[in-house]
């Protein structure tokens, strides 16, 4: 199915969970945050949150900033 990850179209397995997406996409440090359709997905819900077609995902991490 087609979803959007950080503003770019991406093809992923049907009903993939947030946790699986993070495992696929993030190497190393997992101090990241996930938003789905502008809603915060708490870390405790990554395993149980399934993505659907057309969902917009933000994968966010630390960056230098004031």
């Amino acid at each position: 199915m087609q979803i959007t990850i950080n503003g770019s179209a991406a093809e992923v397995d049907e009903s993939i969970t947030v946790a699986a997406l993070v495992r696929d996409r993030i190497e190393g440090d997992r101090r990241i945050a996930v938003a789905v359709n502008s809603g915060v997905v708490p870390r405790s819900q990554w395993e149980t949150t399934q993505l659907g077609p057309g969902d917009s995902i933000e994968l966010l991490a630390a960056a230098a900033g004031g």
């Binding site: 101090r31 990241i32 933000e58 966010l60 991490a61 630390a62 960056a63 230098a64 900033g65």
Partner: peptide, 15 residues
């Protein structure tokens, strides 16, 4: 620190 999209960040090194 700031929070930014993964691909635009220097996450691992910075932390």
């Amino acid at each position: 620190i700031a929070l930014r999209r993964v691909e635009a960040s220097t996450s691992t090194g910075l932390l």
